[in-house]
Design a binder for these strands. Structure first.
Lengths: 231, 231
DNA sequence: TAATCAAGAAGAAGTAGTACTTAATCGAAT
DNA sequence: ATTCGATTAAGTACTACTTCTTCTTGATTA
C-alpha cells in the first residue's frame, strides 16, 4: 500500500513540526532534509510535497520550505491528528477533538435515526446491550471496544461521509482518555443509560430524542476532559 | 508558493476522481499518467503521492495506482471539497457540508460565548448590525459578505482550531446557496433576528443562549437545503 | 553625498530523464 | 495444490537542467 522510506521520513518530519520542535517560520532546505534523514532527493521532495498539501509547510524558490502557522494547518488530516496526540500537545489535542465530537455526534445521531438501515438499528441496540453488560461486569477493555463500535456505527449510519470519517477521531479520543487516566475508572451509570437511550431512539426513528441523548453523552465527556485539561 | 505543472495535473486528476469520472477500483499506471497529462515522471509521482495522502488513491507495486472508495477519502481536505463543489456532485456536497455546519456551528457559538476576546465580541455585534441594515435595504451581495464574515468570526472565536478551519466551508456553502438559487431571494427576517441574538448572547457570555440561537440559524439552513436537494 | 532604481549574479526549488531495486502477481513446472 | 521463477510496475537513487526570486552591485539622479 504505502511506501517505506517515504513514510518514515514523513512521520519524523511531520511529528517534529506538529510537536512544535520546528517552530512556525522555520526554514528548511531540501538538501538539509536529505542529509538529516539520510533520504534521497526523491523521497525528500515527495515528503515536502505531502506536508505542503497538509498545509504544514509552504515552499518558496530561493528560500526553502517554511513551516506554517498552526492555524493554517489542515487539522482534519488523520496524520496530523496522530502526530498531535503522540506529541507534547496531547492533552490540548484531546480537548479539541472532544469538543468537535460534542458538536458532531448529536447531529449524527439525529440523522442516524432518520436514515439508518434496519440492520444498523439492530446492531446498535445489540451494542447498547453489550455496553450494559460489560459495564455491570466492570470489564473495562471490552467496554471500550464496544463503546468505540457504538459511536462508529452512529457516525456511519448518519449517511454523511464527513460524519462517518470522524470514526477514527472518536476511537482515538476514547482510547486516549482511558490510557491517560482522564476517565473515571469505571463507566458512569448515566452514560451507559444514555447509550441505551440513543440506541432505542435511533431504532424508533425518533430524531430529537436520539440527538438529545447523544448530547448528554458528549457533554459529559466534554466536561470531564475540560476539567482534566483545565485550560 | 505552489508549483506550476504539479498543481495543474493534481487539479485535473483530482477533479476526475472526485467527479466520478474515474470510478473507484480503476487502475492508473504511472507512465499512463505521464502521457495523459504530458507530465514528467517527477510531477506524475508527486501528484500520485498527494492523492495518496488524501486517500483518494492507493498505490500497489506490480499493479498501479488504484482509485479508492469515496468512503475512504479524506473528505475534509479543502481541495476535495472544492472538486466536489465544482463537479456533478455539487448538490449532494452542499447538503453534506450544510449538515456538518448544523452540528458544529451551535457548538462553536457556545465556545465563542465562553472564550471570545472583547474585540471579537464587539466586531460580532457590529456585523450583526450590518446584517440588519443590509437585509432591510435588500442589498443581497453585501449581506452575503457580512454573513460569511459573521460565521467565520464565530468559528474562529471559538478557540478551537478544528472549528476555525470550517470557515472556508461556510464561505463555500453560503456562496453556493445563493449562486445556485437554493436560498430565498431575500434574507429571512427570523434569520437576521437570530444572528443578532447570537451576537448579543456571545457578547454577554451566555453560552446556552448563543448555542440555541445559532442552532435556529443552521437548522433553518439545513431544512432549506434538504428541501432543495430532496434526497 | 545619499537615495533610488535597474541589471545581473547567485541560490534554491521545480522539472526532466535514466538507471536500478523491490515486491507482488502470474504462470509454468513439479 | 504448491513452489519457484519470470515479469511487471512502483519505489528509490542520482544527475542534469530550468526557472524564479532574492540579494548585490553599480549606475543614475535629486
Amino acid at each position: 500500500m504505502g511506501s517505506d522510506r517515504h513514510e518514515e521520513v514523513l512521520d519524523a518530519l511531520g511529528a517534529a513540526i506538529a510537536g512544535g520542535e520546528l517552530a512556525p517560520g522555520s526554514v528548511l532546505r531540501s538538501d538539509e532534509l536529505q542529509e538529516r534523514f539520510g533520504a534521497s532527493r526523491t523521497v525528500a521532495r515527495e515528503v515536502v510535497r505531502v506536508l505542503e498539501t497538509m498545509r504544514l509547510t509552504s515552499s518558496r524558490r530561493r528560500v526553502g520550505v517554511i513551516v506554517r502557522e498552526p492555524a493554517e494547518w489542515n487539522h482534519y488530516d488523520p496524520r496530523l491528528i496522530r502526530w498531535q496526540l503522540d506529541g507534547p500537545g496531547r492533552a490540548v489535542a484531546l480537548r479539541t477533538l472532544t469538543e468537535l465530537r460534542s458538536g458532531v455526534e448529536p447531529c449524527a445521531a439525529r440523522f442516524a435515526a432518520l436514515r439508518a438501515t434496519p440492520e444498523d438499528r439492530g446492531r446498535l441496540r445489540a451494542l447498547a446491550a453489550h455496553l450494559e453488560r460489560t459495564a455491570r461486569e466492570r470489564d473495562l477493555s471490552t467496554f471500550l471496544g464496544h463503546d468505540v463500535a457504538f459511536h462508529d456505527l452512529v457516525l456511519s449510519a448518519s449517511g454523511n461521509p464527513m460524519f462517518a470519517q470522524l470514526s477514527s477521531v472518536v476511537a482515538e479520543v476514547l482510547a486516549g482518555r482511558t490510557e491517560h487516566g482522564l476517565m473515571p475508572a469505571e463507566p458512569q451509570p448515566e452514560a451507559v443509560a444514555w447509550h441505551v437511550e440513543v440506541a432505542h431512539a435511533v431504532d424508533a426513528g425518533e430524531a430529537d430524542r436520539a440527538e438529545r441523548a447523544m448530547r448528554d453523552i458528549v457533554d459529559q465527556a466534554r466536561d470531564e476532559i475540560a476539567a482534566a485539561v483545565a485550560g
